[in-house]
């Protein structure tokens, strides 16, 4: 949390990512989109959603790291976005715990 004097973190911010890297990342994203569509046709049973979600997360990480420059950014900005994701998971976790363990008459739908 404490990262000392702000004069220190001023430099090395303006990193220019090479053109080629952008192109590679873009190709990877398109490839992953194709994989998402193909994966949806395979029956993974209960894991279908997890597979789709996993591929989406890989894509998200690529966008965050390269298009949004997080790979070259300072630690704090990564922590900020990670904390958002973390507390979202907390939110999800307790809601789903309640839902799974609730004793209700199961709807037939």
């Amino acid at each position: 949390m404490a990262h000392g004097q702000h004069a220190n973190d001023a430099h090395s911010e303006h990193h220019i990512i090479p053109f080629g890297v952008y192109m590679k990342v873009f190709s990877a994203l398109i490839a992953l989109t194709v994989i998402t569509v193909l994966a949806a046709r395979v029956d993974f049973g209960a894991f279908g959603a997890a597979v789709a979600f996993g591929i989406a997360t890989v894509k998200a990480v690529l966008v965050l790291a390269y298009f949004m420059h997080l790979k070259y950014d300072n630690m704090l900005n990564r922590v900020i976005i990670a904390s958002g994701v973390f507390f979202l998971i907390v939110f999800y976790f307790f809601c789903i715990v309640d839902e799974i363990t609730r004793i209700v008459e199961k709807n037939t739908l």
Partner: peptide, 23 residues
């Protein structure tokens, strides 16, 4: 502005499989 736009893209990356490809 770019960061904002990428976030919009990020949300769609999740929306696409969740709404269109649910198995």
């Amino acid at each position: 502005v770019g960061l904002f736009w990428h976030l919009v893209d990020l949300v769609w990356i999740y929306l696409f499989p969740l709404l269109y490809l649910v198995s």
